[in-house]
Design a binder for these strands. Sequence first.
DNA 1: TTTATTTACGAAACCGTTTTCGGTATTCAA
DNA 2: TTGAATACCGAAAACGGTTTCGTAAATAAA
Lengths: 339, 339
Amino acid sequence: MSKLTIKTLAKELGLSIATVSKALKDSHEISTETKKKVLAMAEQLNYVPNPYASSLRKQKSKTIAVILPEVADNFFSLAINGIQAVAVQKNYHVLIYLSHESFEIEKAVVNHCYSGRVDGVLISISSETTDAEHIQKLQNENIPVVFFDREFESLEAPKVITNDYESGYLSAKLLLEKGCKHPVFLSTSLSLSICSKRAAGFAAALAEAGLQTDDFQYVIDCTGTQEMIFDQVKELLQKHKEIDGIVASVERLAMQIYMVSLSGHINIPKDLKVVAFSTLETAPILNPSLTTITQPAFEIGKSAAEVLFTLIEKKKHTITADTTLMLSSKLIERDSTMI
Amino acid sequence: MSKLTIKTLAKELGLSIATVSKALKDSHEISTETKKKVLAMAEQLNYVPNPYASSLRKQKSKTIAVILPEVADNFFSLAINGIQAVAVQKNYHVLIYLSHESFEIEKAVVNHCYSGRVDGVLISISSETTDAEHIQKLQNENIPVVFFDREFESLEAPKVITNDYESGYLSAKLLLEKGCKHPVFLSTSLSLSICSKRAAGFAAALAEAGLQTDDFQYVIDCTGTQEMIFDQVKELLQKHKEIDGIVASVERLAMQIYMVSLSGHINIPKDLKVVAFSTLETAPILNPSLTTITQPAFEIGKSAAEVLFTLIEKKKHTITADTTLMLSSKLIERDSTMI
DNA sequence: TTTATTTACGAAACCGTTTTCGGTATTCAA
DNA sequence: TTGAATACCGAAAACGGTTTCGTAAATAAA
């Protein structure tokens, strides 16, 4: 059987291609009867229009790209969920790309988004990204871009983020309240705005409490594989016994802190109090249960997608290029910060 | 600036469209010098060919679809990772679709895969799917389909799965060894082959041990939202105090068992031993650490994608339609099954 | 020298839609 | 009865590539 195109449909119906095409999209210049006939036949033969022919002609793809550093982190899984939810509702398709925290890969991926492959892109930048030229080029080609979670600060584009500074501040505040004298902040990459903002909030709380932040390095950068992070954390805690509180800027780090504590007779929360930026579902059933700053991941994905679609549909009066949506995270206190 | 097409490129170079096109794909009928010129100009202007024009003409999309029930489950996140890894290497794009465990959605999604939108599809069926007509239609249209993890047993297609029966058997065996007298199996949907196989293996071990499986219902179906599952588990454990061991067939269930234990003074592992089919990274740091049957999620995704691509590239001599790849899961004993 | 072959390029058809622009036939107003 | 308006439908030109085929020039074989 040859492939089922609109041409065969037309022949089958004894109509022209143009008529069938119009009938299928319920054009007013086609009579109700012929519309019915066409629809019926299309249904019967399970005709599905070739999306690429359509895209080519209409110059839009009904597709968006989602570029993220990784998919293993629960935050991104949930965000995808939110994005997908609004995409299906809008009848759009979603392409997923992973940068694996690499700037080079991110650039290569962004390059795929040109030439009409997608009508818009949602991006959470890699930790290596310190330059947004590649993204700016996208904008120059009139392809709407919206950032979610990990934005690029100096680039003008809509962003959906969370209250990172405030959360960082609150996390430090909590540790201080619980009696920590030497809390530290574990970052992944300070070039990431989410990290630097969280760290800044953290530092502000320390300063406010009169802790001399020069005495010890209170922000530590952790990078690499899980194993490398494990080693870094272990070394840190062994060398600096004075550390009695720790804020993990991302999920991955929290896990390794727990692993180190398991391996090395460090008692949480007695010796070390922990709070983590994380959407881990298992936080309440960890040993001990983990105090988290939980981002509204699904909502962030959803909102970002919504903003993107208003941009795609050119409803510019509602969203301007520098719109920033800020959704609040929630601090949930659990046993890892108990006195 | 008008959009950059091959036509403008050709004009800029003083060459014909055909020549430019061939030069770009390194055709032998183009001289090395002109190739260089073309490549240089393309690079300079950052020319990216319109993928849909190309797809339309070549009748292939360089895109695959991945259809899965959800993305929140760690298994699927990891599988996506594996799939993506081989897709980028093959220079393919991946569309993600979520069925949310709904048969209707799954059918609708599959319908998007016709008419050349994708060159192949990877699918893990929804728990509601009891009929594979929609998938068979895809095959009839010569679109390769390969199942991963959640297969549809009676449909002939390549499948990449794990040793579910054996794992079910081992999980029961372990519980019996640890002294359980009334172990039960928590399933999500017995119409799912992974569930029924795991349950069958579980039952076989009980039978072998001489446990009369008629006395009590040892396979319990749990469905619905997290809250609903919580309630079901809670009620089950309250009504049947004799239950002293439990196998969770999927990650979600294990979490709710822990939540119930937290809420209801049930001590794991003293009162209740737990083993879960799960790829949870936090299993070692749960309270207590969770004994898991860990599937090689990344590898399953990777292998499935590899099989799909050999199919797409029509290397039929290596993979036949009924190839089933079985990757083994690992039973990792932790504290939740301690005596 | 003549003929055959190879090399390097261009014209044009094609992929499957959408959309513009006419063109009948019918209906309505005058 | 005539003119204009309306309702339906079709021919054909796009969209931006790929590929087939033809052809002129250059090279090789005779």
